[in-house]
C-alpha cells in the first residue's frame, strides 16, 4: 500500500505504524468520568467500507496522519496531518 503523505507524497506503508480508528483523537474531558473513557479506550468502529484511521509515519517525518480509507478496496480517499485536523477543530 502507498499512503499519500500530505507533505511528502506517496510513501510505502512499510514506513508507517498503524493505530486504528481516528476516534482516538477525541479524548474525553478528564472530568467526564470512566464511562466516557471506557468508550474511548475500548469501543472502536471497524467498518467494512470507509474508515477514518490514524497512521504514524514512524520511519519518515514522525507525523501522525488521519487517513480516510475504504477497508474493502484499500482506496485512500483523504489524508491529512492529524495535528492540523485537531487545531482546525474538525475532528
Amino acid at each position: 500500500m502507498l499512503i499519500p503523505h500530505p507533505l511528502l507524497g506517496p510513501r510505502d506503508a512499510q514506513e508507517f505504524t498503524y493505530l486504528g480508528d481516528a476516534a482516538l483523537l477525541n479524548r474525553p474531558d478528564p472530568a467526564s468520568g470512566t464511562a466516557a473513557f471506557c468508550d474511548y479506550v475500548y469501543l472502536r468502529d471497524n467498518p467494512a467500507g470507509t474508515h477514518r484511521e490514524l497512521w504514524y509515519h514512524e520511519y519518515g517525518d514522525r507525523s501522525w496522519l488521519l487517513v480516510t480509507r475504504d477497508t474493502l478496496s484499500h482506496e485512500i480517499l483523504d489524508v491529512r496531518l492529524a495535528r492540523e485536523v485537531k487545531t482546525g477543530g474538525t475532528a
Binding site: Q14, E15, G60
Partner: peptide, 17 residues
C-alpha cells in the same frame, strides 16, 4: 530504499526505511 527518483534528486533529503 523504496523512493521514487524525484525524492532522490540532488537537493533532496528523505527519512525512510
Amino acid at each position: 530504499v523504496n523512493l521514487p527518483a524525484d525524492q532522490l534528486a540532488p537537493g533532496r533529503a528523505t527519512r525512510t526505511l
